[in-house]
C-alpha cells in the first residue's frame, strides 16, 4: 500500500508491495491451488544457499525512482558483472543490498538472512571517488580498516591485524607502499588499497563498485587475477562494470540493469545484441512515466 513505513526520508517512499496479491490469493482460494512456482528464480527454500536474493526491490532518491521491482539471484562461486547505462541504478543496487540506502520496498537476503545479521560475510569496495584521498592516513591504515569490524568496539589495532593487512597488501602488489600517504598514490594504487581492504575483511561475498574505473592496465590485470582467485576459493564477487569489451572475459554471470533487471544469467546467454539494445536503448517510456508519478505522489492522473 502507499502508506509509508520508512520514517527515515519522506522523499524516498514509493509503494510498499502487497504481501500477497489479490489475484493470487483469490485464485488460490477459489481453485484451491498453491501459488505458482517461480521458474527462473530460486524457490524460497533455496535462499539459504544463495549468496544474495533480491525480491521486488524498489528504491527512489528524492522523487526519482532508481530501481523498480528488481528481482535477482546471485549464485555462489561466480564473478558477476552488473552492467547498464549511467543512472541505471547500478551503485544503488549495491548500496541497497548493503543497507546503505533506504528501500521503498522489497526484500534482500544474504544467505537467507537479512544483511544486518550477515555483515561478516560481506566485503565492500566503494567507488574510489567517494572518499577524501587527502585524509591523513597511510595505505596500511586504510587496509587495516577492513579489520575494524573484527576488532570490535574500542579495541585498538594490534600488530596481528596490521600483519594481516600487510599480507593483503602484498597480495595486491602494494606491500612497498604500505607507509605511503594515500594522496601520494596513483589511481590504480588507490584502487588496489581498497581491494586489499576488502581482502582483509575475509568475506564470502564481495561487492565492488567500478573497481576498474580509471586504473592502469597493470592494476586491471591484478584486480581480475584477484577476482579469479576469489572464485577459486568459492567466493562470490559482484562487480559493477562499464567496459563492454571486457565483459565476456571477466564475468561468469551478468545482470543487465536499467532501472529494472533487463536480463540476468550466464554471460554467454544474456550478453546478446538484443539484450544490450534493450538495456542501453532507452527505457519503457510508459513505465517510466508511471513510476515517476508514483514517486512524485501526484494525485493528478496521467
Amino acid at each position: 500500500m502507499m502508506e509509508s513505513h520508512e520514517a527515515t526520508d519522506p522523499g524516498v517512499h514509493v509503494a510498499d508491495p502487497p504481501e500477497f496479491a489479490v489475484d493470487a490469493l483469490s485464485d488460490a482460494l477459489l481453485a484451491g491451488a498453491e501459488m505458482s512456482e517461480v521458474p527462473a528464480l530460486a524457490p524460497p527454500n533455496a535462499y539459504e544457499q544463495m549468496p544474495v536474493v533480491v525480491r521486488d526491490l524498489t528504491v527512489a532518491y528524492h522523487r526519482k525512482p532508481v530501481l523498480w521491482d528488481v528481482d535477482c539471484d546471485i549464485e555462489k562461486g561466480r564473478i558477476i558483472g552488473i552492467i547498464g547505462p549511467n543512472g541505471a541504478g547500478k551503485s544503488t543496487l549495491l548500496k541497497a543490498i548493503l543497507d546503505l540506502v533506504p528501500k521503498a520496498s522489497g526484500r534482500i537476503l544474504i544467505y537467507g538472512k537479512r544483511y544486518r545479521r550477515q555483515r561478516r560475510l560481506v566485503g565492500y569496495v566503494p567507488q574510489r571517488e567517494t572518499v577524501d584521498w587527502d585524509f591523513p592516513v597511510n595505505a596500511l591504515d586504510v587496509v587495516t580498516m577492513g579489520r575494524y569490524g573484527v576488532i570490535g568496539w574500542c579495541r585498538p589495532v594490534t600488530r596481528k591485524h596490521r600483519q594481516a593487512a600487510l599480507a593483503a597488501m602484498d597480495r595486491v602488489g602494494m606491500a612497498d607502499y604500505a607507509r605511503r600517504q594515500i594522496s601520494q598514490l596513483s589511481g590504480g594504487q588507490q584502487q588496489r588499497v581498497f581491494l586489499a581492504r576488502a581482502l582483509v575483511q575475509d568475506a564470502d561475498i564481495y561487492f565492488m563498485d567500478e573497481p576498474f574505473a580509471g586504473v592502469d592496465a597493470a592494476t586491471e590485470k591484478a584486480i581480475i587475477k584477484l577476482l579469479q582467485e576469489f572464485r577459486e576459493n568459492g567466493k562470490t564477487v559482484v562487480v559493477i562494470h562499464h567496459d563492454l569489451q571486457t565483459v565476456r572475459d571477466y564475468f561468469d554471470n551478468l545482470i543487465l540493469l536499467n532501472m529494472r533487471v533487463v536480463a540476468a544469467g550466464a554471460t554467454r546467454d544474456v550478453f546478446t545484441e538484443e539484450n544490450l539494445h534493450r538495456t542501453y536503448g532507452g527505457r519503457l517510456t510508459l513505465l517510466d512515466e508511471a513510476v515517476q508519478a508514483i514517486a512524485r505522489r501526484d494525485d493528478s492522473r496521467l
Partner: peptide, 24 residues
Amino acid sequence: YSNLQVDHLHFSAERLEHVTGTRM
C-alpha cells in the same frame, strides 16, 4: 515489453494502476 516473470506482473501492475489515468 519487459521481461518480468509472469507471476511478478501483478505486483507491478498493482502499484501502477493507481497512478494511471485515462490518457495513459
